[in-house]
Design a binder for these strands. Structure first.
Lengths: 194, 194
DNA sequence: TCCTTTTTCTAGCAATGCTAGGAACGAGAG
DNA sequence: CTCTCGTTCCTAGCATTGCTAGAAAAAGGA
């Protein structure tokens, strides 16, 4: 019993180590540098050990992505509860979201562009993810009009999210002129808040 | 002289063949299926021939992406000039954009998510790309307010583009509940057109 | 101390993008 | 028609990738 639990504890510890190493490597050198060999070397184990914890590289990226969602949720929450004025709150949260994406591009990619087989808008979605979405939803709530339903709140949140996600990805891939970054964000917020 | 031109003509012909094969393969089986070996087999030449035309696989994808931009520009133009009412036009163009992305996901990815080293928002950007952006800009023009500058038009166009791009990518990766697709689009258009 | 079970590593597979080297081809001269 | 030279093209291979089988080692229990 005690031995069993110790083993499980050590295994869980190593699993966290893998996730942390993958994340740090991705953030410092990009996901291309995160090969199974490099990752194995980083954690000082051989490659097959990775596969005893995760089904494959995608699963490792998914685990990193979930961690990233938790971080994003924290930052969004801080931004949302900083100011009282709803309009100001919207801008704060948007800045926090975009700032997160710019500060941790590799992490952001794992969360929202790379992984596909991660349950998202369902009940089985990771709690961290639902939490992050919840922060966005509460930020958007004041923007819903009287004649709009509760379902509109969810949809409008997704529209808000889409706008920011589009800005982030298209900007980073060089699709936009970088100098108008603030102006674009201001326009998005202006139009969303009527 | 004549021989030289014939050779150049045949070379150009083969280059188009490569692009077409890559595009068809990507559209029917996804970009993962577009390997250099498979592509070589498809055009009935050996792999090195590909590299005599393009610097690498990315360059082939870029060529396909440019073709896609031309197609998109055509569809956007048709949608923009179909109706007279600006509000209706906005919805038409948006539907055309999203429809294009859903109908040709692989092509869309090559254009707006995969390729990075393609000049975009500069003077050296491919004409097809500037044309597509121009269609969006003219669609958005009626939405610019009196107190907003000409630079705001460009920025607002990019915001419009961002919103649609975000909707498209997040929807396809399973980040959204699919059933609210139309509602999201309606909300985006509503907020953008005040 | 020995056996069994679990864990871990070595070595290798198939597939990828890409490239060097020589083979085959074609055009012009004799 | 034949030879030569330059161009074009293909065969074969490299390095790297994700992933895995089977042996080796370690750990635990008798």
């Amino acid at each position: 019993m005690s031995i069993q639990t110790r083993r499980e504890r050590e295994r869980a510890e190593r699993e966290r180590l893998i996730i942390r190493a993958a994340r740090e490597l991705a953030e410092s050198e990009g996901w291309d540098a995160v090969t199974t060999r490099r990752l194995a070397q980083e954690i000082e184990y051989s490659q097959p050990v990775l596969y005893s914890h995760f089904k494959g590289k995608d699963a490792i990226m998914a685990a990193v992505a979930i961690e990233g969602c938790a971080d994003l949720a924290v930052e969004l929450h801080a931004a949302r509860t900083a100011a009282a004025d709803p309009r100001r709150t919207l801008a704060n949260v948007a800045a926090a979201y975009v700032g997160f994406a710019e500060r941790r591009p590799a992490l952001y990619d794992a969360m929202f562009t790379h992984i596909v087989d991660l349950p998202f808008a369902t009940a089985e979605a990771p709690p961290a993810l639902q939490e992050a979405f919840g922060e966005l939803r509460e930020t958007v709530r004041p923007l819903v009009r009287d004649d709009e339903t509760e379902a509109d709140l969810g949809a409008l949140t997704e529209v808000f999210w889409s706008g920011m996600h589009g800005l982030v990805t298209l900007t980073r891939n060089g699709r936009f002129r970088p100098e108008h970054h603030d102006r674009r964000m201001a326009l998005l917020l202006d139009r969303l808040s009527r």
